[in-house]
Amino acid sequence: MSRRRRIYEGKAKILFEGPEPGTLVQYFKDDATAFNNQKKGTITGKGVLNNRISEYLMVKLGEIGVPTHFVRRLNMREQLIREVEIIPIEVVIRNVVAGSLSQRFGMAEGTVLPRSIVEYYYKSDELGDPMVSEEHITAFGWASPQDLDDMLSLSLRTNDFLTGLFLGVGLRLVDFKIEFGRLYENEEMRIVLADEISPDSCRLWDVKTNEKLDKDRFRRDLGGVAEAYQEVARRLGILPEGGPRDLKGPSTMQ
């Protein structure tokens, strides 16, 4: 494999220079982190599964008109994406009380919310990804009011669609995190869904048993993390034949 220029490396992915202008190659690692990188580990085959799951969900969202950075999957661990200017805000959509929401307000996990709640967090591991308001976001220039309107609209559409999709395979979409980027094409700019959508960024519970099938199994030392991710892929009908092969992945030489 030819040497590729590494653009960025995060906790779960590496971005390489793409084969054509305006593109990047997104490589999914097996590394797992929690609590703002304080807890670290490796989940064998996670990158393969997240690549497939995120591809599937991004394609489905594209089919209903939600713009994304996704172009196509290249192999078991890599996908071709459009290069975007990432907005440094994580958008969290909550449908059921869990995680930090439960801790902040002393509410029982599993309580169904009267309506979906949208929260914003500033992307900064050093600061612990603090929650921010729309006022912070616009005042500090992270996004314009129009950007925020677009992000909110796309977030709610994504939530509505994914809630139904997962419910159809016996999974409850408890909450999830998404990110957005600015895609520049000719003289135009539009907001598109970026990063990934996978059990790393979603809380998914079995509808009947409330079994956790997401990264909470890693956060809380519940065990069976890889098996939970495989179960999500299996229910979506995309588990690679014979399980998540290519466990080491292709070379990531710079």
Score class of each variant (00 low, 15 high):
Lys29Ile: 08
Ile93Arg: 03
Lys39Trp: 00
Glu85Arg: 15
Ala108Trp: 07
Gly47Tyr: 03
Val96Met: 06
Leu80Ser: 06
Pro19Ala: 14
Phe70Gly: 05
Arg94Gly: 08
Ile89Leu: 07
Leu80Gln: 07
Val118His: 05
Ile89Met: 10
Val118Lys: 11
Asn36Thr: 15
Ile64Pro: 08
Tyr120Ser: 05
Thr44Phe: 13
Ile117Leu: 15
Val71Ala: 00
Asn51Leu: 09
Glu119Pro: 13
Arg77Asn: 11
Gly110Thr: 09
Glu78Gln: 13
Glu85His: 14
Arg104Asn: 09
Ile43Val: 14
Pro88Asn: 08
Thr44Trp: 13
Gln38Ala: 06
Met107His: 00
Glu17His: 04
Tyr122Ser: 08
Arg72Val: 04
Gly65Cys: 05
Ile87Trp: 12
His69Glu: 04
Leu49Arg: 09
Thr42Ile: 14
Glu55Met: 12
Gly47Asp: 05
Phe70Pro: 05
Arg104Asp: 04
Thr42His: 14
Phe35Thr: 03
Glu20Asp: 14
Phe28Val: 08
Pro67Val: 02
Glu78Tyr: 04
Pro67Leu: 02
Ile87Pro: 05
Arg72Pro: 03
Glu20Gly: 12
Gln26Cys: 09
Glu17Tyr: 04
Ile89Ala: 05
Glu119Trp: 11
Glu20Val: 13
Ile64Ser: 08
Arg6Ala: 04
Ile64Ala: 03
Gly110Ser: 09
Arg82Glu: 15
Gly47Ser: 01
Leu113Gly: 09
Arg72Glu: 12
Pro67Gln: 04
Glu63Ala: 14
Arg73Trp: 02
Ala108Phe: 12
Val92Met: 08
Lys40Asn: 04
Glu78Ala: 02
Ile93Pro: 05
Gly47Gln: 06
Gln38Trp: 00
Glu55Arg: 15
Ile89Glu: 03
Val48Ile: 13
Leu24Gln: 14
Phe35Ile: 01
Thr111Asn: 07
Ala12Glu: 10
Glu17Asn: 05
Glu55Ser: 11
Lys40Phe: 03
Ile43Pro: 11
Tyr8Leu: 01
Glu78Asn: 11
Val97Lys: 06
Leu57Cys: 05
Asn37Tyr: 09
Ser100Phe: 04
Ile7Met: 00
Gln38Phe: 02
Lys13Ser: 09
Lys40Cys: 06
Leu57Val: 02
Ile117Tyr: 13
Met58Lys: 12
Tyr56Glu: 14
Gln79Val: 03
Leu15Ser: 07
Arg72Leu: 07
Pro114Phe: 04
Gly65Trp: 00
Arg5Gly: 07
Glu119Gln: 15
Arg94Ile: 06
Arg82Pro: 08
Thr68Val: 12
Lys11Leu: 01
Val66Tyr: 12
Glu90Tyr: 10
Val48Lys: 11
Ala12Phe: 02
Leu101Ala: 15
Tyr121Cys: 11
Ala108Asp: 13
Val66Asp: 15
Pro19Lys: 14
Lys40Trp: 10
Ala12Pro: 06
Leu15Val: 15
Phe105Glu: 03
Leu61Tyr: 03
Ser102Glu: 10
Val96Ala: 01
Ala32Asp: 05
Asn36Trp: 03
Gly65His: 02
